[in-house]
Design a protein around this nucleic acid. Sequence first.
DNA 1: TATGAATGAGATTTCATTCAT
DNA 2: CATGAATGAAATCTCATTCAT
Lengths: 193, 193, 193, 193
Amino acid sequence: MRKDKPKYKQIIDAAVIVIAENGYHQAQVSKIAKQAGVADGTIYLYFKNKEDILISVFQEKMGVFVSKLEQIIARDLTASSKLGLMIESHFELLASDIHLAIVTQLELRQSNPELRTKINDVLREYLKLMDQILVKGMEDGEFDAKMDIRLARQMVFGTMDETITTWVMNDHKYDLIELAPKVQRLLLKGMQA
Amino acid sequence: MRKDKPKYKQIIDAAVIVIAENGYHQAQVSKIAKQAGVADGTIYLYFKNKEDILISVFQEKMGVFVSKLEQIIARDLTASSKLGLMIESHFELLASDIHLAIVTQLELRQSNPELRTKINDVLREYLKLMDQILVKGMEDGEFDAKMDIRLARQMVFGTMDETITTWVMNDHKYDLIELAPKVQRLLLKGMQA
Amino acid sequence: MRKDKPKYKQIIDAAVIVIAENGYHQAQVSKIAKQAGVADGTIYLYFKNKEDILISVFQEKMGVFVSKLEQIIARDLTASSKLGLMIESHFELLASDIHLAIVTQLELRQSNPELRTKINDVLREYLKLMDQILVKGMEDGEFDAKMDIRLARQMVFGTMDETITTWVMNDHKYDLIELAPKVQRLLLKGMQA
Amino acid sequence: MRKDKPKYKQIIDAAVIVIAENGYHQAQVSKIAKQAGVADGTIYLYFKNKEDILISVFQEKMGVFVSKLEQIIARDLTASSKLGLMIESHFELLASDIHLAIVTQLELRQSNPELRTKINDVLREYLKLMDQILVKGMEDGEFDAKMDIRLARQMVFGTMDETITTWVMNDHKYDLIELAPKVQRLLLKGMQA
DNA sequence: TATGAATGAGATTTCATTCAT
DNA sequence: CATGAATGAAATCTCATTCAT
């Protein structure tokens, strides 16, 4: 389905706005179409069905996170620095797009198990990259070589996720980005050799 | 709403089972009524509406977590030990009731933000108790006195939550409880003075 | 699904009227519900889905044809007389319920192949009874013992069907019933020994 | 509408194939266009609307039946022979084009009464020719001079139609053409003087 | 002539909630 | 207290047709 055409992106962006403003269950296709400035039927020229829109939203947006993280990993830095950059970059992306933050932290989690499974597939790629940082840190002697890597990853991701969700649920009335260094310090301490 | 009558609890328990077995979106009132062995209309003698059932499920079950945690806090122990017991106790409760674990970690999160806000109100009590442990640890010089207490709490809760959710999503095929000490160690290291 | 309850029959009869007056493709469930004097949702307490209504219409109404024909066959008459009574009875039933005639001869034939297959299952029972008459006639020496029974049945049914359909399509402006003896004579001549 | 241009016939033939292979309700304009190797919009340069395609299909194909029958009538034969040739010719045409048989016997009957009325207009020409044979037979003393000609025609057409439809519905697994003489004999007996 | 992207109307079905018994 | 039959609002997706190029 013509992902290069401008309307594809138009609809994705419209979906993010509509879901953020109306909530997942009130995000009817007709609302998304109106927001995108196209007819209802046009949606179906670019997406198989409603679920396909939502998965695509997640894929397109998560893609940005993944490529940012890939760039960070490619750089010649310590694992600690990479971890810090990752957190900062993750927070920045969501802080700069409140709509997207609402959608990923709150609304998309209301989707049915089927859809969530597909979302998890997308997420997994991100978590794999995260693991690369942890492994490097353990190999380089920065992180505790004996720590359970899965648990460590769950701590890192769980902490970031909880921090962002709390921020979103508090109507983002404080600065998320300035929490990044503190979160980094906390997590690093937990994992350091 | 007659919370003392046996049918009140019957319905709450039925709701947990039905949601766990069918998923949040397939947990119709009529199914809960059938599972509870009462007529559909009877539900409405004990609960205002469907949302009220779900909040009540969370309140009743969370109450157990809260009272367990209160007992732990009342004991004469170091903050670190209390934290360890809290994690262990939390894991134990969910590992011993898979239905409940599925409901709290996966299904109830599909509810709309409105309901989730109410659920968070219930959760807040638990988080406040958690804060007491952290404060005590900071005062006693066990934990870093300068750490951001909200962030620390988010790390603790986020890590526990992510760990349990991952366990549930992996069909609880490994032992959750034996992860508790490792989780404790990881978190303590992050927070220690 | 409660076929004994009066609402079941109410809905069936409403469906016949709505389909006859509006055509198959304009017979929305909401129209049938309104005609039956029930809410849209009530339909689904008695029928699995829209197709189920249509099949039930055919089954219920065809049941009358079948039982009439069974009575005729049970009587002590020559095959020729039975054939005559069958034609007469068939014509009478449809002439007395124009709505039903329109539905069976025109509207229900617009249904999709799936539904038509199910309708044919119902029809088969009627054709089997028809065969009994033909067999008896052949055994008793009334009908040509060497005729192809399938072809004979196709002639009988095809002629009746074509006659009724033509009558319906001509807005039943002439008397269908008085054609019965003529049709009988024609068919008997074709089959007689 | 340029009926002489090759694309006109291309589209007609494409329609027959698409309807036969996909069924009436799955024969979308876009499928017919693809099968014909033209763009969707091009269809509308040759046909007023979808219904117009279907009527044209019937007209074009029925034209073959009519001209065959005209040739038969023009020959110097008895009415009985003509009737026999007509049945044989009718069966042959459909047996040699299964797609067409499926379309005329099953699929086109799913169209709405409006369209069917128009199809009947086309059919009427064929039935008129059939009447010529019957009249001649009655005048020549071959057929019963007192028979109701309309009924007789309904018997002839209804029997042929039912025979062919049954053959199509049985996946044309037996030979239709060899049934022709038997059908002829049956019908002639019914009509003979 | 020919294209094909865009349009937008329209219907089935589910399920929380009510209320007469 | 308890019942359960009845209600009725609400949303996804299809596809014939158009029209700018």
